[in-house]
Structures are given as structure tokens and as C-alpha cells.
Simulated assay, not measured.
Amino acid sequence: MTVTLSDEARQYIGAFEEETEATAVDCLVDDEFDRLVFVVKAGEMPKAIGEGGETVQHLEEEFGRDVELVEDAPTAEGFVANALSPAAVYNVTISEMGEEDETVAYAEVAHEDRGVAIGKEGRNIKAAKELAKRHFDIDDIQLT
């Protein structure tokens, strides 16, 4: 699936890649929660985070926004699990249902991590849903 980026997102990705030397495949500009969510190429998270998280901290100072990272994955199931991180996700099942053939990801999350998966004011689950839609055409994510 092709992700279309705004000019603003492309500028953030350019600055991110220059600072981290990691590849960002997407950038969600979330004005509601004043943050940027970068989807980082699989295997490049250590470069993106930096030792002790120093690279992310520097980016937050540079951008004046919170910076969050999601590791890309080759499958929809892996991507949804990564998008809900750091919540412990045991299993993700993708199914199509309803008259409209809506694609829904059912994520089995540890009971004690449901709050982490949802996030304050729903911020984590909202970002996961938007990114899953953009990358795998998933219409909804349900926690089980």
C-alpha cells in the first residue's frame, strides 16, 4: 500500500533521517496531541532511539513536539503489535466482516497493559488505527 505524505511530514522525515541515520517510512503529524509518530524501517530502531533515548530527546527539542516511534513490519499483524507497543500484545488476528467488508485487527493485549495500549485520552490507539489504515488498509483495531 502506498502512503501519501504531506509536505510537512516529508520535511519532518528529512530532518529525522539526517539526525538519526535511520530510515523513516512514514510520519504521522498529530496536532491534536502535539506529537510526531515516525514509522521506522524494521531493524533500525536502535539508531532512531539513540543511546539512552538521547536521539529522541534531541528530536523533541528540535521539533518542539513529542516524538514517538513505531517499528515497521512486513505483516499487518506484526505492524499492529508494533503500533501498540510498549503494551504486551500476545496475538493479532485480522478479519474482514460486515456488509462493507471492513477489515478489523483484533489485538490480544495483556489485561494490565490495556491502559498502555489505549493511552491517555486514547492517543495510542488512535495513532495505531491511523497508521494501520495507511499501511495495511485496516479499518479498526479492537483490543481483546
Score class of each variant (00 low, 15 high):
E112G: 06
A128C: 04
A110K: 09
K126P: 04
G115L: 04
E121Y: 12
V116T: 15
K126I: 11
K120W: 08
A132I: 02
A110R: 04
V116C: 08
F136K: 05
D139T: 13
K133W: 13
R134E: 12
K129N: 07
G115M: 07
D137V: 14
K120E: 11
A127G: 03
K120D: 06
R114L: 14
K129G: 12
H111N: 14
K120M: 09
D137K: 10
K129R: 15
K129C: 11
K129T: 14
A128W: 00
K126N: 10
R123Q: 15
E112L: 05
G122V: 11
E130K: 12
D137G: 10
G119C: 07
I125V: 11
A132Q: 02
G115C: 07
L131W: 03
D139C: 02
I138F: 08
I138W: 04
A117Q: 09
R114Q: 13
K129M: 12
I138E: 04
G119K: 03
D139I: 14
G119M: 05
D113T: 02
R134S: 10
E121A: 14
H135L: 04
D113H: 13
A128F: 03
L131N: 04
I125K: 01
R123K: 15
R123M: 14
E130C: 00
A117D: 05
K129E: 13
G122I: 11
I125E: 03
H111D: 15
V116H: 08
A132R: 00
G119Y: 01
A117G: 04
A110T: 07
E121F: 12
E130V: 13
L131P: 13
F136Y: 13
R123G: 05
K120N: 10
A127D: 06
F136P: 01
V116M: 14
I118K: 09
H135W: 10
R134I: 13
A117F: 03
G122A: 10
V116S: 05
I125N: 04
N124Y: 07
A127L: 06
R123T: 13
E130Y: 14
F136A: 06
H135V: 00
E121N: 14
I138G: 02
V116P: 01
D137H: 10
I138T: 07
L131F: 00
H111G: 09
H111W: 06
N124P: 09
R134W: 12
D139N: 13
A128V: 06
G122P: 02
I118N: 07
A110M: 05
A117I: 00
K120I: 09
A110C: 05
E130H: 13
K126Y: 07
E130W: 11
A132C: 06
A117M: 06
G122N: 02
R134Y: 12
A110W: 00
R123I: 15
R134D: 06
A127I: 01
K133Y: 14
A128G: 00
G115S: 12
K126R: 15
R134T: 10
L131V: 08
I138K: 08
G115A: 12
G119V: 01
I138L: 07
A117K: 08
I138N: 05
H135R: 03
R134P: 09
K120R: 15
E130P: 00
D139G: 09
